[in-house]
């Protein structure tokens, strides 16, 4: 179904928003993602994913605190919506199901 499909990166972003709970804003999410995945994550791709996830209804946002380092600009804080949570769960379940469907012999059988 168009609009609800979740890419791998988007899924990771959703999870990160969950991890950061009440301080989930663009740069913070980027930092956390880099820490978790040990990959280079560009800030633009995170924002792009955030905008798209909000459009899909998985995230909602509000403006939060400004600091000096931010030149007085407020943060946009994101949190998971109900359907966002459901989506993450579904993704997890899908994975679990598929994981379970792999015959044991595959894991044991060397080459």
């Amino acid at each position: 179904m168009k609009g609800t499909y979740l890419g791998e990166f988007e899924e990771l972003v959703l999870l990160t928003v969950g991890i950061l709970h009440d301080d989930a804003y663009g740069l913070g999410i980027t930092d956390e993602l880099e820490k978790q995945t040990k990959r280079n994550v560009t800030i633009s791709s995170v924002h792009k994913a955030l905008v798209r996830l909000e459009e899909k209804g998985f995230l909602k946002s509000g403006m939060g605190g400004a600091t000096d380092a931010r030149g007085g600009r407020k943060k946009r804080l994101y949190e998971l919506t109900a359907s966002g949570k459901k989506q993450v769960n579904e993704a997890k379940e899908l994975r679990n199901n598929m994981w379970n469907a792999v015959p044991k012999v595959v894991w044991q059988g060397g080459n």
Partner: peptide, 16 residues
């Protein structure tokens, strides 16, 4: 609607 927040992020990154 995005400018402020992104600009903030970029500035924070810049300071860092």
């Amino acid at each position: 609607d995005l400018a402020d927040a992104i600009e903030g992020d970029l500035l924070e990154l810049y300071q860092r």
